[in-house]
Computed example of a mutant assay.
Amino acid sequence: MSTHKDVKKITTNTLLKMKAAGEKISMITAYDYSFARLFDKAGIDVVLVGDSASNVMAGNETTLSITLEQMIYHAQCVVRGIDRSLVVVDLPFGSYQSNPDIAVASAIRIMKETNGHSVKLEGGAEVIDSIRRIVSAGIPVMGHLGLTPQSIYKFGTYTVRAKEEMEAEKLRKDALLLQEAGCYAIVLEKIPAALAREVSTSLAIPTIGIGAGNACDGQVLVMHDMLGINNEFKPRFLRQYLNLEQQVTGAVQQYIRDVKSHDFPNEGESY
């Protein structure tokens, strides 16, 4: 059993070394202490405190509703459960788009108030000045290209991005721009596998795919999807490893039956 002192922590540099060595990077979302602790103990490389908390924790239709304060709260909870994994925190919608000064201030708040290790933000050329400024402030940045959920009302759909050559070419250029601006990794979401392979090969920094084929340097899934807590969302890219919705429902129904039938608590469960 490892102690706090001898745990080898994953850093942004570790991810670069993993890409160079051809070792795939595992990443999952978490939003609270309990699950973060489980994922960290299981050996996950990266834990993303995603703005998907807006959907899966708060029940909102999109990621746009979540605030910087709410992201900070979720990240604080997650960081307390982590010994080894790299913790990445999403900058929420509205906390970086308007100008680089606001972007840097938002990133600094996240780092100071959560003890997280890095921030993530969506977009390419449009946000490059903000990325440069955040990196200059000494804060590691993970980029995010392809399907960018914060731009849902601009795209109007969650369909696969960059199928047309014009958008694919912009994504290629944006990926190189992000690398040049100092990003240490880039999430590629819901783009053709061939394009993701091409971009991953062209970069020195790792790519993390979600619905982008297996040529990316790592993969990320939302915990609620992967564990089957939410069975309504079943895109092609999702592999569901558990059906917690079914198991939890069954367990609670059994508990209800035991209470109603006077079976719980029994003599051995009483004082």
Rank of each mutant, 00 (worst) to 15 (best):
Ser2Ala: 12
Thr3Cys: 04
Asp6Cys: 05
Asp6His: 04
Val7Met: 00
Ile10Pro: 00
Asn13Gly: 08
Asn13Thr: 14
Thr14Ser: 12
Leu15Asn: 10
Leu15Met: 14
Glu23Cys: 12
Ile25Leu: 03
Ala30Ser: 13
Phe35Val: 03
Phe35Arg: 02
Lys41Ala: 10
Lys41Phe: 09
Lys41Arg: 14
Val46His: 05
Ser52Thr: 06
Ala53Tyr: 05
Asn55Glu: 09
Ala58Gln: 13
Gly59Val: 01
Thr62Glu: 09
Thr63Cys: 09
Ser65Ile: 05
Leu68Gln: 01
Glu69Arg: 07
His74Thr: 10
Val88Met: 13
Leu91Pro: 03
Asp101Ala: 11
Val104Ile: 04
Val104Trp: 01
Ala107Pro: 00
Ile108Arg: 15
Ile108Asn: 10
Ile110Asn: 08
Val119Ser: 03
Gly124Glu: 12
Asp129Ser: 15
Asp129Ala: 08
Ser136Asp: 09
Pro140Gly: 12
Gly146Thr: 14
Gly146Asn: 02
Phe155Asn: 07
Thr157Phe: 14
Thr159Lys: 14
Val160Asp: 05
Arg172Cys: 14
Ala175Pro: 00
Leu177Val: 04
Ala181Tyr: 05
Lys190Ala: 15
Ala194Ser: 09
Ala194Leu: 02
Glu198Val: 04
Ser200Ala: 11
Thr207Ser: 09
Gly209Lys: 01
Ile210Asp: 09
Ile210Ala: 12
Ala212Ser: 12
Gly218Arg: 04
Val220Cys: 09
Met226Lys: 06
Glu232His: 06
Phe233Ala: 12
Leu242Asp: 02
Asn243Trp: 02
Thr249Lys: 03
Ala251His: 00
Gln253Thr: 11
Tyr255His: 09
Ile256Asp: 12
Ile256Thr: 08
Arg257Cys: 11
Arg257Gln: 11
Ser261Cys: 07
Asp263Phe: 13
Asn266Ala: 11
Gly268Phe: 12
Ser270Thr: 15
Ser270Asp: 03
